[in-house]
């Protein structure tokens, strides 16, 4: 009986699937951004980096107050110290990144042709540590979130510029991220799009649902409900749990690809991390 019911839910929820076509990230991005611009005609493209604050006057008033003493400033300061601290071999993080790691956060996630995998800024920081004989850091919170906050602060306002090279593995990673984003999962049978596209701007238990466009732009961010800084994967984990789905591992291919797709959709928006949220 119950089985029959869910089977029904799974089949009725949508009409026939369309035939799969060749990946075309640039066309996808145009359509994605165009969808939201049409949906919320008063909201200029760059405003999407402010997520929920576009939709709630009380929250945005609160935000203006919070931003007089930005709660992520400690993280930026701590992150800068960590970033400049020498490894035992005498090198620093700067040695691992183009331009010494300054003003480059808007280019992540990046496709790494050598490993055939997507590398987020957090994963790149950990790679740098391993290359210099250090242990990996947690990808969700703590010192790695602080270092990311500092690096991202040096890219403030630069247009997000994720590149998907003409490499079959890069295109496959992009497509996998896209599929993950639109796939319903968990016992509640929701996709990321169910909330952040179809219900964007609406309220869910006191939260305003941010539109999917701009969702990655302010990370890492300080959330009052977390009480500290968190990276984008921390949020992925939280949103998976909301739909009663077991989260993936922070460095999983699934989350790398998801970040690749989502950040590519945000191309052209101003990098605005670190951010603050209610």
């Amino acid at each position: 009986m119950r089985l029959a019911f869910i089977a029904l839910a799974l089949t009725v929820s949508a009409p026939l699937a369309q035939a799969a076509s060749q990946p075309d990230p640039a066309a996808d991005m145009k359509a994605f951004q165009g969808y939201f611009l049409k949906q919320f005609p008063k909201l200029p493209l760059a405003a999407y980096v402010n997520g929920p604050y576009n939709f709630s006057k009380s929250e945005s008033d609160q935000w203006k107050q919070i931003m007089e003493f930005p709660p992520y400033q400690f993280a930026v300061d701590d992150g800068k110290k960590l970033f400049e601290t020498k490894f035992p071999d005498g090198k620093t993080y700067a040695s691992c990144f183009p331009n010494g790691g300054i003003g480059i956060a808007q280019n992540y996630p990046m496709f790494d042709a050598k490993t055939g995998k997507v590398v987020t800024l957090g994963i790149a920081i950990n790679r740098c540590r391993v290359a210099n004989g250090q242990k990996k850091l947690k990808l969700t919170v703590g010192p790695l979130a602080d270092i990311s906050a500092y690096m991202t602060s040096t890219s403030d306002g630069k247009p997000i510029n994720v590149v998907i090279p003409h490499n079959p593995k890069a295109l496959a990673a992009y497509e996998a991220g896209k599929e993950y984003f639109y796939t319903r999962r968990g016992q509640l049978n929701f996709s990321c799009a169910s909330c952040h596209v179809q219900a964007a701007g609406m309220h869910l238990r006191g939260d305003v649902l941010s539109p999917a466009l701009g969702l990655t732009a302010a990370f890492p961010l300080y959330r009052s409900s977390w009480g500290d800084m968190g990276t984008l994967v921390r949020r992925f984990i939280g949103c998976n749990q909301k739909v009663k789905s077991e989260p993936s591992k922070p460095d999983s291919t699934a989350y790398r690809d998801l970040a690749y797709f989502m950040t590519y959709m945000d191309n052209g928006l101003p990098e605005s991390g670190p951010g603050a949220r209610p």
Binding site: L10, A14, Y35, K178, T183, R185
Partner: peptide, 12 residues
Amino acid sequence: AQKKLWQNEIVH
């Protein structure tokens, strides 16, 4: 089911 159905959610 989602292996096919996810495509219906794509923003066009």
